[in-house]
Amino acid sequence: MVRAVPAWLRVGAWVFVALTALFLLAPLVVVVGVSVSESQFIAFPPDGLSLRWYREVLQSDRYLASAWISLRVALAVTVTACLIGGAAAIAIHRRTLPFSEAMATFFLSPLVLPTIIYAIGMLMLWSALFGPVSILTLWLGHTAITLPFVVRTTLAVLSESDPFLEEAAKTMGANRLQRLWLVVLPQCLPGLLAGGFFAFNISFDEAVLSLFLRRPDMTTLPVQIYGQLEFSPDPSVAAVSSIMIALTVFLIIVIDRMLGIQKFASN
């Protein structure tokens, strides 16, 4: 469809896309570049080529402890967000409850309210009620902000499925539980998977909530990196960051192979 476009404009469009691509990818390329540097100092283009900073990271208790916390929180968040969000999306989709539209808006509202406002409220409320924050606080907080993603992707796939499947199952003798388990859940599955991947990714990479809800002995990976950047960054930060970038790339590939990334990109 780039037919009938003036030639100079086509050339211009390609240059524009290339520059935008450069701009969007530059910071990531730089981080990966720094991580393979041999030098003591952060430098790009890298001096020499070595994997010593990766070795350093894998032997560092600090990074490993943070990674373990991040991983545990992200996995717990993924499971709870999928369970709670998936169930809510099914109920909203069926539209038998009053205020279904309002409920959909309610479930999506954490998407548009800035995390910092929520983070400070969560910190204050938790401290007032339960004292110091814990991994439980982080779990609840991340579940709340990732829930909308699961609800949204699940609602999206449900709205594309044949609206008569549940009724057809009824006429074939399926009871309530069988309909939910054998008919509705399989329809939700792609949405749940996509939402689950997003939830994992957001929880694992999220910095704002984690910065507010941290304890010296409970720092997630992004918080650990942020701390290093504020004070004394060395190329090991780049190595950790590169590992996280690799994880993101892996997630994108998995989502695309299983579900097609385009479907979830533009809604």
Binding site: D162, L165, E167, A168, M172
Partner: peptide, 17 residues
């Protein structure tokens, strides 16, 4: 419906994908 002895064919066929 699940306790009536009927079968129904839908306009969209409603085959479980």
């Amino acid at each position: 419906p699940e306790r009536r002895d009927i079968a129904m064919m839908f306009q969209s066929y409603a085959l479980l994908p």
